[in-house]
Amino acid sequence: MGSHAHYREAHPLVFVITHYINLICMIMLAFSGFYIHFPFFSAGFMGVARGMHFVAMYVILITLVFRIIAAFFVKTATQLGSREVDTDIKNWLPQAENKHQLFETVKYYLFFRKEGVISGKYGSLQKIAYLATIPLTFIQAYTGFAIYAPFMNAGIFASGIDMVGGPMNMRIIHYFGMWVFILFTMVHAYLANIYNFAPSKIIFLWKETLPEGKH
């Protein structure tokens, strides 16, 4: 889990770029979102914060759609530390290697087993988390549009507002949605880098790390 190689095949340049876009947009969204939630400084920033919030979300949505489509065309590594590639969507969705491993992965992280678990490109929990960000992003977009005046009276948003018991509740759901993303980011950054920083080198600098003994 820690000492395997990190090749560019794991994260082709196009996904390094989408990862950057997502990261930057998420930081902008969280920052501007916190400001809109409660303006913590007064410096003519609300208009900017709202503009930033909308633009960043549109960019994330476009990037997400692109990322999903690209998954059917771009080839990525099928295994950790491997240069063998296949269509990305196969590696993104659960692979044969992930079967029967979810409970073992949980046990591993709770220190109930010593050996690392076999996984495909990603571990079972990791894949669940990554895939969950897709509906979560859409939920955030939906709840966000529902509290945004130009859209809130449209049928699909108005009925959602009624369903959750009013725009205030929609706002609170949107607020907690952001916390889910913050938690995801915390756990994601932690687990990606707990063994060493090779994963960050490949995703941010696109710099390969060779396996032990092959410097």
């Binding site: 889990m1 820690g2 063994y195």
Partner: peptide
């Protein structure tokens, strides 16, 4: 586990 990671199954 930090560094090289755990032994793999």
């Amino acid at each position: 586990r930090v560094g090289d990671g755990p032994p793999m199954e």
